[in-house]
Simulated assay, not measured.
Amino acid sequence: MQDLIDYAIGRGWGVKYRDLGRRNGEYSRGLITINDRRRTGFTIRMTMAHEIGHAHHDHAWTDDPVLSARQEREADMFAAQILISLEEYARAERIVGAHPGAIAKELAVTENYVMLWRENYVQPRARLRHLRAV
């Protein structure tokens, strides 16, 4: 977790903890706020990575459902990139096989993050290999 805090602070974003009710976290104008009240370490870590994704893209809150969905996906995609390295993914796949749920458990991330990581790392390279072979 400290690695994520250092990452955020190193990029000039503030990090604070406070009770946000039912929400796990939020990002607004350079400040990441994490709700650590009755949250597991796993949830806090996933939330921090997700909010770093919002900070990276400098997302502003919106009530537009289409824009909000896009921003949430972008934040999750960025979170997957900072939580999963190629080396860690390869090691996990060697240990547990290709099942995303098993890989997620091995890497201590959500299955959704494994799927997004695959989508953005593995599949584009596979398409490039195919294009080169043509």
Rank of each mutant, 00 (worst) to 15 (best):
P65G: 05
I52M: 00
I103Y: 01
I82W: 04
A98K: 08
R127S: 08
A126K: 15
G30S: 00
Y113S: 00
A102W: 10
Q123F: 12
L67M: 11
H59E: 02
A126Y: 08
G12R: 03
Y89H: 10
R118K: 13
R70I: 03
G41W: 04
H99I: 14
A80V: 02
H99T: 09
M77I: 10
F42Q: 03
R91A: 05
V134L: 14
A102N: 14
A60S: 10
E88I: 07
D6C: 04
A102G: 02
G10H: 03
V122R: 14
E88T: 11
H50K: 04
L31I: 15
R70S: 07
R91M: 09
L86H: 04
K16W: 03
A92G: 01
G30K: 14
A126H: 06
H130Q: 14
L128N: 13
R39K: 13
A60L: 15
G30A: 06
L20K: 01
Y27T: 06
G25F: 03
L116S: 09
H99Y: 09
L131R: 11
H56R: 11
L20V: 12
V134C: 10
V15D: 02
R45V: 05
A49F: 01
G30C: 06
R45L: 11
R132S: 08
D76W: 08
I5C: 05
A55E: 02
R37Y: 06
R125F: 03
L67Q: 13
R39M: 04
P100D: 06
I5W: 02
L4F: 03
L131E: 10
F78S: 05
T43D: 14
L83F: 06
F78D: 04
S68L: 04
M46K: 06
N112S: 10
I34S: 00
A108D: 10
H50F: 12
G21L: 12
A69Q: 13
D3W: 15
W61L: 14
V96I: 03
D76Q: 11
R132Y: 04
S68I: 02
M46D: 13
R125Y: 01
M46Q: 08
S85E: 02
E26P: 06
L86C: 10
H54F: 05
I52L: 06
E119D: 03
E51Y: 00
I95D: 07
N112Y: 11
T40M: 07
R118G: 09
A75K: 02
F42Y: 05
E111V: 00
A60E: 13
V109T: 01
I84W: 05
